[in-house]
Amino acid sequence: MPPFVSDISTLHRHLGLKHEYAYQQWAKANDFKSMIPKDVADRKNAEATAIGEQGTINDHAVPLEPKPRIIPYSDELFQQAAIEWLVETDQPIAALEHPKFRNMINVAARATNGIKIPGCKAT
């Protein structure tokens, strides 16, 4: 049996002109994409807008600041840091045993987010 029309686009136009609301309700209820020319054009415009509004990768590809790697405390690490501090600042070995130095280290050890050491002007 031959089809009534050779091109189904006339059916889509007819549905869009005469039965648009009923067809859209049926399409929605049956999870079907509406093929009414206006709905097809709306979908294409929505896709083009979504693509057109998408930024370039340059908007997102910004260099990240590397997070400082915090090495967990160990007695060996502290001893190495203390020796380096003694040598670099030309301190006497007895400076590590001074009660005020020990107090300063004990106070700093309670810090949860690092410490801020005042500079020369602030001191």
Score class of each variant (00 low, 15 high):
residue 52 G to E: 05
residue 8 I to H: 13
residue 100 K to G: 01
residue 25 Q to N: 07
residue 31 D to Y: 12
residue 28 K to E: 11
residue 49 T to F: 02
residue 61 A to E: 09
residue 4 F to I: 10
residue 86 L to Y: 01
residue 112 T to I: 10
residue 92 P to M: 05
residue 108 A to Y: 04
residue 57 I to H: 04
residue 97 E to W: 06
residue 45 N to P: 04
residue 111 A to T: 00
residue 70 I to Y: 08
residue 83 I to Q: 10
residue 57 I to R: 08
residue 108 A to D: 01
residue 54 Q to V: 09
residue 39 D to I: 02
residue 13 R to F: 04
residue 60 H to N: 14
residue 39 D to W: 02
residue 27 A to Q: 03
residue 19 H to N: 14
residue 29 A to I: 00
residue 12 H to S: 03
residue 67 K to E: 08
residue 123 T to F: 09
residue 12 H to E: 07
residue 96 L to Y: 00
residue 49 T to G: 09
residue 54 Q to N: 14
residue 43 R to E: 13
residue 65 E to C: 04
residue 103 N to H: 14
residue 76 E to Y: 00
residue 30 N to K: 01
residue 11 L to R: 03
residue 77 L to Q: 05
residue 102 R to S: 08
residue 118 P to N: 06
residue 115 I to V: 14
residue 54 Q to M: 13
residue 9 S to H: 13
residue 18 K to Y: 15
residue 101 F to R: 00
residue 93 I to T: 08
residue 40 V to N: 02
residue 76 E to T: 06
residue 74 S to I: 04
residue 23 Y to H: 03
residue 59 D to A: 10
residue 117 I to P: 01
residue 3 P to R: 09
residue 106 N to G: 01
residue 65 E to K: 11
residue 54 Q to T: 12
residue 96 L to V: 12
residue 98 H to T: 06
residue 31 D to Q: 13
residue 32 F to Q: 07
residue 53 E to R: 09
residue 111 A to H: 03
residue 14 H to P: 03
residue 23 Y to I: 03
residue 66 P to L: 14
residue 84 E to P: 00
residue 108 A to I: 04
residue 89 T to C: 13
residue 86 L to Q: 02
residue 60 H to A: 13
residue 3 P to G: 03
residue 98 H to C: 08
residue 79 Q to V: 12
residue 72 P to Y: 02
residue 94 A to C: 07
residue 77 L to M: 06
residue 99 P to M: 06
residue 61 A to V: 12
residue 115 I to K: 07
residue 89 T to K: 13
residue 53 E to D: 08
residue 23 Y to W: 15
residue 49 T to D: 08
residue 80 Q to G: 07
residue 122 A to E: 11
residue 54 Q to S: 14
residue 32 F to P: 01
residue 13 R to S: 04
residue 94 A to N: 03
residue 109 A to S: 10
residue 78 F to A: 10
residue 118 P to V: 12
residue 38 K to L: 05
residue 49 T to H: 05
residue 42 D to N: 11
residue 14 H to M: 15
residue 17 L to M: 15
residue 81 A to Y: 11
residue 116 K to Y: 11
residue 10 T to Y: 14
residue 8 I to K: 09
residue 1 M to W: 12
residue 91 Q to V: 07
residue 97 E to R: 10
residue 3 P to Q: 06
residue 121 K to M: 10
residue 27 A to S: 08
residue 55 G to M: 07
residue 53 E to V: 00
residue 81 A to C: 09
residue 77 L to D: 02
residue 19 H to R: 15
residue 28 K to H: 09
residue 2 P to Q: 13
residue 6 S to W: 08
residue 62 V to Q: 10
residue 104 M to F: 13
residue 46 A to Y: 05
residue 118 P to R: 05
residue 64 L to K: 11
residue 7 D to P: 00
residue 75 D to R: 01
residue 67 K to G: 03
residue 59 D to Q: 14
residue 111 A to V: 01
residue 28 K to P: 00
residue 109 A to K: 07
residue 71 I to Y: 10
residue 26 W to H: 09
residue 74 S to R: 03
residue 74 S to G: 04
residue 75 D to P: 02
residue 24 Q to P: 00
residue 91 Q to H: 10
residue 37 P to N: 06
residue 8 I to N: 12
residue 22 A to E: 12
residue 16 G to K: 05
residue 82 A to N: 01
